[in-house]
Design a protein around this nucleic acid. Structure first.
Lengths: 210, 210
DNA sequence: GTCTATATAGGGATAGAC
DNA sequence: GTCTATCCCTATATAGAC
């Protein structure tokens, strides 16, 4: 594996574990048993590393947020869709932990991140509108607008919320947090669904949280 | 006004405006036209200032999160309740901007903040259970549990979410952000309400967002 | 209570040898 | 590509005079 890639990989891991502001370029170099000078041969500065990591994240997120099919999505689609998004966020969670801090240092990154947020809102709106038109969902235009914003907030901050709540006394493993996040988003949508779809969703949720 | 209080006030203002990590003790002293040494006469260190500010916040939040009356809360109660909570968060928003960062530095603060979060969830649960028992709300125990968590997430992170989305091109004033936050939370609750209560809520929301 | 001066430490980043 | 050595800067915090 090339040194450049090892730096990226190790940075991601350390950032996720300890938070980006606490990890210095020296820490990264130490962890890799390379010199700080070597690190600066491969990257201009710390923000450069972060930018590269962000681009990886953005590519995966763009892929995850696509709604490829033309048909109206069903509940299983939504489940899969959310799961992919949450896994991605989990993989690059350092980003979300210090979001304001990181975005305020880098204008380009801020623009791109905002685009991801808008895309979350738009995709959620499109799916819900599709469900409403198909007669599966019962919601007005305003309902859907508010719902889509709430979906985006939960999808963005759920892991942060959990990491504050989670206590050492009552540990859960990582995938539990993701599953609960998906469940929380689905429970936002559920009350707007009509009879059968709603029950199907509850069934999936129960299965999922076991 | 005592120097000690001026330090607290100015710190809060600078933290809110620029973010706590970017404001040093020197910045605070500069802004007040006092020496750094003077600042350290009044406070042991920066975390001491933050802790004092947190205690102010906690006191106000505890007051806001009380559900004093014994009667079942109506929609206007909820509106008022949420509004107080959001105003409080807005006043100490620096805290929420770099939440993980600040909590990871101070264990005592983490414990207390977690308590506030739990209290948000519990109060939301209590109100919803009250509404359900009064026949105003239609929701199972599990519905309410998920709903209360979502309410807490939106109430905690809405302002962060807005500050990322808000663009310089389309400025809104502060109170608009707060109002929209209250609306977002109410729209979480609305679909579980029965006929009249739901319409009353929509009416309040419309009035509120004008 | 307040100031000036300063110690200490750490992070970001570069120069130049190998 | 990689290392060693080092520079600069900034932030926290203290000592001691006034």
């Amino acid at each position: 594996m090339k040194t450049r890639d090892r730096i990226l990989q190790t940075s991601l891991q350390l950032f996720n574990e300890h938070g980006e502001p606490r990890i210095t370029t020296n820490h990264i170099a130490d962890e890799l048993d390379i010199s700080p000078g070597n690190l600066y041969y491969h990257f201009r500065n710390k923000d450069d590393i972060i930018w590269l990591l962000f681009q990886q994240f953005e590519r995966q997120m763009d892929a995850a947020l696509q709604v490829p099919e033309r048909r109206v999505p069903n509940m299983e689609d939504m489940w899969l869709y959310l799961h992919l998004a949450f896994e991605n966020i989990w993989e690059y969670r350092f980003f979300y932990r210090d979001l304001d801090n990181i975005l305020s240092r880098n204008k380009k990154l801020r623009t791109h991140f905002r685009r991801i947020i808008e895309r979350k809102v738009n995709t959620a709106t499109a799916i819900c509108t599709g469900l409403a038109e198909a007669g599966i969902m019962n919601a007005t235009h305003d309902d859907i607008a508010a719902l889509a914003r709430n979906i985006a907030v939960i999808a963005t901050y759920w892991l942060n919320f959990q990491s504050i709540r989670a206590s050492a006394a009552n540990p859960r493993n990582d995938s539990d947090h993701l599953a609960l996040g998906v469940y929380q988003v689905l429970s936002l949508v559920a009350p707007f669904l009509k009879g059968e779809a709603r029950e199907l969703l509850q069934q999936i949720s129960r299965e999922y949280l076991k």
